[in-house]
Amino acid sequence: MMSEPILVIMAAGMGSRYGGLKQIDPVGAHGELIIDFSIYDAMKAGFKKVVFIIKKANEADFKEAIGERVSKLIEVDYVYQELDKLPEGYTIPKEREKPWGTGHAILCCRELVDQPFAVINADDYYGQEAFKVIYNFLKEAQDDCHYRYAMVGYTLKNTLTENGHVARGICELTKDYKLQSICERVHIAHHEGQVQFLEEETWTPVSENSIVSMNLWGFTPSIFGELEAQFKPFLDQALVSNPQKAEFFLPSVVDALIQADQASVDVLHSKDKWYGVTYKEDKPSVVKAIQTLQNEGVYPTNIWEGK
């Protein structure tokens, strides 16, 4: 039986490095957000439902900026990622404001998502090809002796910013383009003339041609049980070692499943260039890139006109 894939968009991040709610900052000529172009591309690929993960406090602003507009074009639902969404017996550390991370964000969707689904960040531009390949994968996705997941990979050098550091999942691949391992590096930047990551005050070079995850994943619903199983051990450690900032990363959960030989992850490729807004200074280059794509006819000048 073929599935009807769902698109899940993570938009609950606080945008601390950006200095504001970057998910609803326009980049298009008619006030479009990056998220508009992602939804446009997803609909074109075949997606018919989108689930937004947001913070309850941002709900009114988010709906005004994007939700109400796209709800006329595609089925829309909302999930709230809140700090107090914790397993029984756990409490929020005093003064903690930072969300619990991407793994926790997806876990919050468990009650709403019952089909294979794609995951994206709200503030990343992935390109049309990425949505086509992930949709086609999910349409046929079915677990067997392994969980059958997928990821769209990008080349590291195409995902960096000149305006600061970025977090990326650095991937190792098998010869047949399966994910062998993925390690989240939270501080990658140009340093001393090359691409390096910083960890515990030590800079380590990394190949600029490394394949990285930009959080464009394809999952079957089996991921929810695994997220739940790994979240408690994460909390047990995090609440002691780093109660204010520790994050439950989605790639770390996937990597653990690969190492345990429970999951097989196809690494799909998109030839489109990735664009993102990590810092305010990144915005002009994204605006220019979108304008160029519209000039080239990849997108209409006003993507929702006549829809």
Rank of each mutant, 00 (worst) to 15 (best):
F234P: 00
Y40H: 07
M2G: 14
D123T: 13
E111V: 01
D144C: 11
Q291K: 15
E226S: 08
P251N: 12
E140M: 12
K48M: 12
Q259G: 02
G46R: 06
Y40I: 01
I303N: 10
P284G: 02
W217M: 05
K157I: 07
V70D: 04
E226T: 05
L239Y: 15
L86K: 09
R96S: 11
A238S: 09
Q196F: 04
A150W: 04
Q194A: 14
E95D: 15
P205N: 13
T202F: 09
D144F: 07
N121Q: 11
D261E: 15
E208W: 07
L227V: 10
V298I: 14
V50I: 08
P300E: 07
H30E: 07
A246N: 14
P300D: 08
K55I: 11
R168T: 05
Q128N: 11
F137I: 04
E200S: 15
A122F: 01
H191N: 01
Y275T: 03
T161C: 10
P116V: 03
A60G: 15
E129M: 03
S213I: 14
W217Y: 12
E201G: 14
E32R: 09
Y177A: 10
D84Q: 09
E32D: 10
F231K: 04
L112D: 06
K63C: 08
T220F: 08
E184N: 12
D123R: 11
Q237D: 12
F231V: 04
L216D: 02
P5E: 09
F137P: 01
Q128P: 06
V27K: 02
S252Y: 02
Y80H: 14
W203V: 10
W100F: 01
S264W: 04
N136Y: 09
G103S: 11
D266Q: 14
S252I: 11
I92T: 13
V298Q: 09
K175V: 08
K44A: 04
H30S: 05
E32L: 06
A45M: 08
S213V: 13
Y125G: 00
L293V: 08
D123P: 09
Y18H: 13
F197A: 00
L293C: 14
N215Y: 02
E184T: 06
L138P: 03
V8S: 01
V298P: 06
Q115M: 09
D114P: 06
Y18D: 12
S181F: 03
N215M: 05
V119W: 02
S3Q: 10
V212I: 14
Y147R: 02
F37L: 02
I211H: 15
V186W: 13
E95F: 10
I53A: 05
T278Y: 01
Y149E: 04
K271S: 13
Q291C: 13
Y177S: 07
F52A: 04
R148N: 12
A289G: 10
E305G: 12
I258A: 03
S213A: 13
P284T: 09
G19E: 14
D41E: 05
F47I: 06
V76D: 01
K178S: 09
G297S: 10
H165Y: 08
V119Q: 07
M10N: 09
I74S: 15
V70S: 12
K283T: 06
Q262K: 12
L216E: 03
K63H: 10
S16L: 13
G13S: 03
L112V: 14
G28P: 00
S71M: 06
H104I: 04
K48I: 09
G19Y: 11
G28T: 03
